[in-house]
Design a protein around this nucleic acid. Sequence first.
RNA 1: GCAGACGGCCGGACGACCGCUGCGCGCAGGCGCCCCGGCGCGUGCGCGGGGAGGAAAGUCCGAACUCCGGAGGGCAGUGCGCCGGGUAACGCCCGGUCAGGGUGACCUGAAGGAAAGUGGCACAGAAAACAUACCGCCGGCCGAGCCCGCAUGGGCGCGGCAGGUAAGGGUGAAAAGGUGCGGUAAGAGCGCACCGCGCCCGCUGCAAGGCGGGUGGCAGGCUAAACCCCGCACGGAGCAAGACCAAAUAGGGAAGCGCUCGAGGGUGGUCCGCCCGAAGCUUCCGGGUAGGUCGCUUGAUCCCGCCGGAGACGGCGGGGCUAGAGGAAUGGUCGUCACCGGUGCGGCCGCGGGCAACCGGGGCGCGCCGGCACAGAAUUCGGCUUAUGGCCGCGCUGCGGCG
RNA 2: UGGGAGGUCGUUCAAUGGUAGGACACGUGGCUCUGGACCACGGUAUCGGGGUUCGAAUCCCUGCCUCCCAG
Length: 114
Amino acid sequence: MIHALTRRERLQRRPEFLAVQRQGFRTRGRYLTLFVLPNRRDVSRLGVIATRRMGGAVRRNRHKRLARELFRLNKGPGGFDIVVLPHRRFSDAPFLTLQADYRSTLRRGQRSHG
RNA sequence: GCAGACGGCCGGACGACCGCUGCGCGCAGGCGCCCCGGCGCGUGCGCGGGGAGGAAAGUCCGAACUCCGGAGGGCAGUGCGCCGGGUAACGCCCGGUCAGGGUGACCUGAAGGAAAGUGGCACAGAAAACAUACCGCCGGCCGAGCCCGCAUGGGCGCGGCAGGUAAGGGUGAAAAGGUGCGGUAAGAGCGCACCGCGCCCGCUGCAAGGCGGGUGGCAGGCUAAACCCCGCACGGAGCAAGACCAAAUAGGGAAGCGCUCGAGGGUGGUCCGCCCGAAGCUUCCGGGUAGGUCGCUUGAUCCCGCCGGAGACGGCGGGGCUAGAGGAAUGGUCGUCACCGGUGCGGCCGCGGGCAACCGGGGCGCGCCGGCACAGAAUUCGGCUUAUGGCCGCGCUGCGGCG
RNA sequence: UGGGAGGUCGUUCAAUGGUAGGACACGUGGCUCUGGACCACGGUAUCGGGGUUCGAAUCCCUGCCUCCCAG
């Protein structure tokens, strides 16, 4: 199932996040910032940054859920670690707007890695 | 109609598609262990049935549970504090009492003790706590003066001395009851009436208290969310508690204390008691491991009915199982219908103004647009507090209008 | 998740329950040809809301924010 999202497709540990943020390519969209790094695997993996500065638990959960949904519905060929940093107004935008923003931002990030 | 008080309830509904999670069943295949067939842990697919809240929040109280030795005694410390009841317990809840606030329905209250002791009360003021007397008021004695008078004498104000007073003035948040009448040299509970206060008695209430009568002319400022006294309660930590399995290293360096005259430890105050206890113990530096299972959801539980009670709540009977994740799931898109707000349309209804055309605002209907709060379980309960969208009540209060 | 500590001018520190005070910074004026230094004057604060008290930065309750610790 190409639209599934399992635990293997997630970044979980802090060293993994730091590697993507430091070595990956950063592209900034209207509602989010992406860090993209090739990972030599057959699947892509997702990590979401939801710090306390964004708001309470409800808003941070919503950011994570929306980011997962974007990743799940827009999987490319695979082989990238992607870290999503939502911006402040992220969860106020309609989903289709976010999806368009995500797609164009991700395309720029992946093209930079050839 | 407007404003308000009180109590209770809900926290959008349904459907389609795509996902997440752990439980049960079925299938496929991986790793580890050994007694070679099982056990444990993870993976994928299919089906079935579950999957956030009234506050899950803040972490302000109380408990359950677990470990610390069986939680012993004194001191210290902390918390609570009208009365009766409820509860496993509480700082919570119910019913009452008193005090304060509000026109009222109602609301609020850490509400024991100031004649056990200690402390504090700035500025102002004479005086701020076993009372005193600044400006005053009052009479007496002494001195000198003036006036009236023939005179004994009388009057007026002034100064001094020793007193009597607390009415008036003034200060302050607060000055030894308040108001009125009598009384007096002036005054004063000095006397009287009413109110306040203390004591006694009676009736009433389980009690806090209430009501009534008598009596004393009046004890005595405020502050205990100041120290404190009295009464009651409290051992300490917290699910990262703790238990088990697996893995891992080496007993490396420095300083201090101690070797029976006893260091140190036994979950943190201190002393006593008790226990362990010796060639080591404490602190710092350096190094290793940081994976899994249980605890983990059946409980002071939820729903319904009956009974007891004024109520909080309790008892009995029947039925239900209602999240257990773990860097952390409960999501996304679309449609229909509710609810709220704005706007447009004209069909209808009734109201006010105007002779009328018409104007104003209201309800119903249709269309469009927007909104739909506060907020996310992390061991589990009982409360409190805070945040927040609405609904309901033949109910309650005040004001205004009409009949 | 659990356990603690603390909020005072713009910054950093004070203040037995009795007028919130310095230092640095800031503003104005003086001195100087100008600037600095110096001198004089001035503005600015008790995290919010209640309560106790005659009186609260201080005591009590409650909310908000910040920081620290962990097997």
